[in-house]
Amino acid sequence: MIKLEHIDKKYADHHALKDVSLTFPEHETTVIIGPSGSGKSTLLRAINLLEKPEMGQLHFDDLTVDFSQPISNKLRFAVRRKSGMVFQNWNLFPHLTVLENITEGPRVVLKQSKAAANQRAEELLALVGLPDTGQRYPNQLSGGQQQRISICRALAMNPEYLLLDEPTSALDPELEAQVLRVLKDLAQNKQSMIVVTHNMEFAELVADRIVFFEAGEAIYDGPSKTFFEHPSARVQEFLNAISLK
């Protein structure tokens, strides 16, 4: 389980996170939504220690990070070992094949044998519908395919949680649908996920819980069904603003 307590993050001219306390249960999909600049990505990056808040604590199973104190490399590695991060842009190594991109981490960090890493990579490629792409290079794939490879690369490290920061924002609608179908399957298989997205259809379909952020604060944290079927005035205003209906 991931638990955040009293997380506070300030930039020079922006208070990104304001005393945020949240819990992310295992085997559930939590979707974080809200206006641009509300703190969603900052929160996700703090969980993966890519951002360091000034205050607060992160509890990840038996690990505790006190953000008011220096974070050792050992603790940083231990936290990141438990989570896999997928970014807006897929960040694949262009000089490595798809198979090499997926197996690099397991072989170097997890010390897996080449045979074991390759076998797991092939299983993951089949899982995301790309079983015959192992020997291709990233520039030979579409954006949607590359993002699915990024998900494979994260899953290859056997993370407890998958963290996804706007994973489809750079894709056209058809390619976006390819990636979202993969995430839907992972959610149905109870992969623990925290997803930042603007796609409300995906959020309503897949999320167990919704966290709605505004101006650095979580103003809703609860079941997806309640969020969409019985929205507060502010949530309804937000949903209306992003709908074409």
Rank of each mutant, 00 (worst) to 15 (best):
Q112V: 05
K9R: 11
L239P: 07
A215D: 15
R209K: 15
G37E: 04
T30Y: 01
V108Y: 13
K9A: 07
S72C: 09
K82F: 04
V211H: 05
P106L: 09
P106C: 08
Q191A: 04
A78G: 03
L124R: 05
R181M: 11
V196N: 06
Q135S: 14
L22Y: 00
F238V: 11
L155R: 10
N199I: 12
L141K: 14
L180H: 12
R153V: 04
R153P: 04
P53L: 01
L99N: 05
A177L: 08
D62Q: 11
M85D: 12
Y137G: 07
A215W: 00
Q147E: 08
L44A: 07
R209M: 08
P53V: 02
F24C: 00
M55F: 11
V196E: 10
Q146G: 10
S192P: 06
A187V: 08
S38D: 12
P106D: 12
H27G: 03
F202W: 02
E237L: 05
I102Q: 07
G34P: 12
T29S: 07
F227R: 13
L75W: 10
T97N: 00
M55V: 03
A207K: 15
A218N: 04
Q112R: 15
V65Y: 06
L171Q: 02
F238K: 12
G37M: 03
T226Q: 15
L127A: 09
Y137C: 08
L43K: 01
A115Y: 07
S41N: 00
V65N: 05
F93S: 05
Y220H: 15
L141W: 14
Y11K: 05
L44H: 07
V206D: 06
K52C: 01
R107E: 14
K190Q: 08
S21G: 02
P25H: 05
S83L: 14
